[in-house]
């Protein structure tokens, strides 16, 4: 059972606790009937709550501290992961991880943002906020994958590219721009999965692909709802409204034809059952990869550029 409970998860957690207590008692008394009834109730409650989440609640789920991160998914989905380090120019950014791994029989390049679980590891990972060298490492690894004709899978989970002084000095904007530019032209299949937070350019810097997937309880937009609230409403208090206005959930982005497909999560979201979440994701990735492998490299690049070229909507008077 998760240790961190979000407000709207509380009724579920309370019932689960009750069941736990009854189980302890059932050594002496037979409570199996009551337990079964309660378990059914929990299931129903979970379904009710999770099928009616507001956009802000989904943002909270995407940030749940027990949600699986990139390295967790790699560990659960693949065997023999070889992590590779450094951008060969400046350093090794810990907020982006990457390396080759075996997905079933196939060698695949995995790259993703990486957050930490506690204060210490979060500082080590810079809360999943990459510096320019993180993007340059990612690009080096992607080019490596292209050189050896291996498909690329990127996992997006960042509150944003790090807005620090050194990041600016080392060209945060250039690093992201370069990645986007190069990712448009890599002659190998690229699958992008939003596994948590997809905040703006910091996410897109490793987020240009042939197939764009978004897990059910994640968000992706041009800005985080809090920052949007502070800029447009001049106050941090309107994050719920901002989340609604930004239309940033998986369902929204599929509707907007930016994402291709939603990856379902187990009831109670990915953090309530990480292995199941990884299993579902792996299934979807394998399926999509098969489709992409049939497309010739030149065609792949052409289609990728075209895919992004049609995004957006405008009025045009003749």
């Amino acid at each position: 059972m998760p240790k961190v409970t979000l407000d709207f998860e509380k009724p579920i957690a309370q019932l689960e606790q009750k069941i736990e207590e009854m189980r302890k008692l059932s050594d002496n008394v037979d409570l199996s009937k009551e337990i079964t009834t309660l378990e059914k109730k929990v299931n129903q409650l979970q379904k009710d709550i999770f099928s009616n989440l507001t956009r802000w609640q989904k943002v909270q789920l995407a940030r749940h501290p027990e949600r699986p991160y990139t390295l967790d998914y790699i560990e659960m989905m693949t065997s023999d992961f070889v992590e590779l380090h450094g951008d060969r120019v400046f350093g090794d950014d810990k907020a982006i991880v990457g390396g080759f791994a075996k997905l079933e029989d196939e060698t695949v390049m995995f790259i993703g943002h990486q957050k930490g679980r506690d204060t210490k590891s979060n500082i080590y990972r810079n809360f999943g906020m990459p510096q320019p060298e993180g993007y340059r490492k990612a690009l080096r690894l992607m080019k490596l994958a292209a050189k050896f004709k291996k498909p690329i899978i990127t996992m997006l989970d960042t509150p944003g590219a790090y807005p620090g002084l050194e990041a600016e000095e080392r060209g945060q904007a250039e690093a992201i721009a370069r990645n986007i530019f190069e990712m448009c032209q890599l002659p190998v299949p690229i699958i992008v999965v939003v596994i948590g937070e997809g905040a703006s350019g910091g996410a897109l810097g490793i987020g240009v692909g042939d197939t764009m997937l978004m897990m059910e309880n994640t968000w992706y937009s041009v800005i985080a709802p809090e920052s949007c609230s502070s800029i447009l409403w001049k106050s941090w208090e309107y994050k719920e409204q901002a989340a609604e206005a930004l239309r940033l959930t998986a369902t929204d982005l599929v509707e907007q034809k930016i994402m291709d497909r939603i990856v379902p999560e187990p009831t109670g979201a990915a953090h309530s059952n990480p292995p199941e979440a990884a299993k579902i994701l792996k299934g979807v990735i394998l399926e999509e990869l098969q489709k992409l492998k049939k497309i010739k490299p030149e065609k792949l690049v052409e289609k990728r550029i075209e895919k992004f070229a049609v995004m957006g909507a405008w009025n045009e008077k003749q």
Partner: peptide, 10 residues
């Protein structure tokens, strides 16, 4: 929102 972000890639 997300449409704007995608203009970077476009």
């Amino acid at each position: 929102a997300s449409y704007s972000l995608m203009q970077l890639a476009k």
